[in-house]
């Protein structure tokens, strides 16, 4: 949450990070970005909330709410997941390793 936001995946114009809770990150395998992975956002109970396709550089983004979330990625290179807690509005970032 500190420092300049990662610009690799531009937020839509007008996104207000003082109000929106944005969860963003990258899918990697062996440290290398994985393009086109299917990334799911699961809520605190493990329930499906949303799904996006990661970009060519492995980047993905969700608009959520403060809380505890799980990011789960499915790709031809394998699957993996990671937990992410957003304590308030702003940009929250995580890396999801698949194997």
């Amino acid at each position: 949450m500190c420092g300049a936001p990662d610009q690799s995946l531009a937020l839509p114009p007008g996104t207000d990070l003082s109000r929106e809770t944005v969860l963003a990150g990258r899918v990697v395998a062996g440290g290398e970005p994985v393009a086109g992975a299917f990334v799911r956002l699961l809520d605190g109970t493990g329930e499906f909330t949303a799904e996006v396709v990661a970009s060519a550089s492995g980047d993905f983004r969700f608009f959520a709410a403060p809380g505890t979330w799980t990011l789960r990625a499915l790709s031809r290179a394998g699957s993996g997941q990671t937990a992410l807690t957003a304590d308030g509005p702003g940009l929250h970032q995580a890396e999801v390793a698949v194997a």
Binding site: P12, G14, T15, E47, F48, E51, R61, A65
Partner: peptide
Amino acid sequence: RSPDEFSGKILAPAHLPQE
């Protein structure tokens, strides 16, 4: 919709802006 949209916590699927 997802449980968080149902309960009123969020207004759109979480890959879309919430405004």
